[in-house]
Design a protein around this nucleic acid. Sequence first.
DNA 1: TCTGGGGTCCTAGGACCC
DNA 2: TCTGGGGTCCTAGGACCC
Length: 409
Amino acid sequence: MPQRTIIHIDMNAFFASVEQSLKPELRGKPIAVIGSAKRTVITTASYEARAWGVKTGMTVYEGKKLCPSLILVVGDNRRYAETSRRIVEMMKDFTPMIEVFSIDEAFLDVTGSLRLFGGAERIAYLLKARIRETLGLTCSVGIAPNKLLAKLASEMKKPDGLTVIRQEEVSEILERVPVRDLCGVGRRTADQLALLGIRTCGDLGRFPAGLLRKKFGVTGERLMMMGRGVDESPVVPEEEAGEVKSVSHSTTLDRDITDQGDILRELLKLSEMVGRRARKYDVWGKTVSLQIRFADFDTTIARQLTLTEHTNRTDEIYRAATSILRETQLPQAVRLLGVRLSNLRYRSTELPLFPEERKKALASDAMDSVNGKYGGCRVTLGTLLEEDAASHVISPAWRPGGIRNIDVE
DNA sequence: TCTGGGGTCCTAGGACCC
DNA sequence: TCTGGGGTCCTAGGACCC
């Protein structure tokens, strides 16, 4: 593969920064963006809050304990998605080769744009300036010969950083970098590697390939390459991205529940959320999974059922979910419920042939347009009239557009 | 006063068919 | 009356990412 130049952009404390940029009274203050549900965690902490030790994933209680003056802000996912879209538009002025990695991260392959703009650093500089001037937001940028290293580089200086890793510096830099810093090496893998005496990328790259393969299978091969800073994976623009493989919704309940009726009510809501999104994007799934996390938090199970036909109808998803539930022991109260549709097929063929089926399919469509208009989950098969909390949760993993955007309008 | 949600990929075992 | 292996689909769980 010829030499490439990849830029990784990582928005700094994205959700919190958007809030601060929007509301001047929050600027310079320790704030934490949280979800709207009762049992929520901190999604993003501002840099002022981070100075107190507040981190993503902490409970509100933990955050407050570390930083009593912490200001809590319920996230507004539509605004973040919209801001993300605007940033991607700005990137398009420099290259069409943009891979949106999450709502606040993207990779740009600028190999073909270098001459036009006078180099990668200049592109990064111009882009940073535009984002700062139009949105009041900062980002950290990494420039390197591949995605793995570009991402590593962007992590090196935060906030508002710009770090370049040149091919000739790779091995020297990786010698000191802990394996855990690589995107793809999590805590478990890092622990396993530590047992083999591997601490840094340098150690990893030198380790006998055969032993890695034996211990980690296919992953071992990749690990070794990562240790050497080798990554040939291309930047994949949205238009060329593969089709989504599953659609799911889950919710941690306000309180642990045991009542069958309560559980069924939640399952219907979740089935409707999944079905509606699947119908909107015209995907049909053959496998329905039910996920249950119990009161002890540590026990989480997932049971799946493959149907004979593909579907995206709420009632069929719900029926499958309840049928799994009937076969499942519930030794404890239920903390979280989730419904997933997978084994997906794209695009409907025709409306069902038989009148009865046809009527149900059309009813689903009508329901969608009502729900779409008023938001939330007001009209369902049953009599669920409550505003749906699940539609207000936020997650940085969302893509700003397409099927991955949960915020179905 | 505990611990969110939406995804992808990999592994390992079993059923079933040829 | 005994033994084979490859391919495919399904299921459960875990690691990882944001």
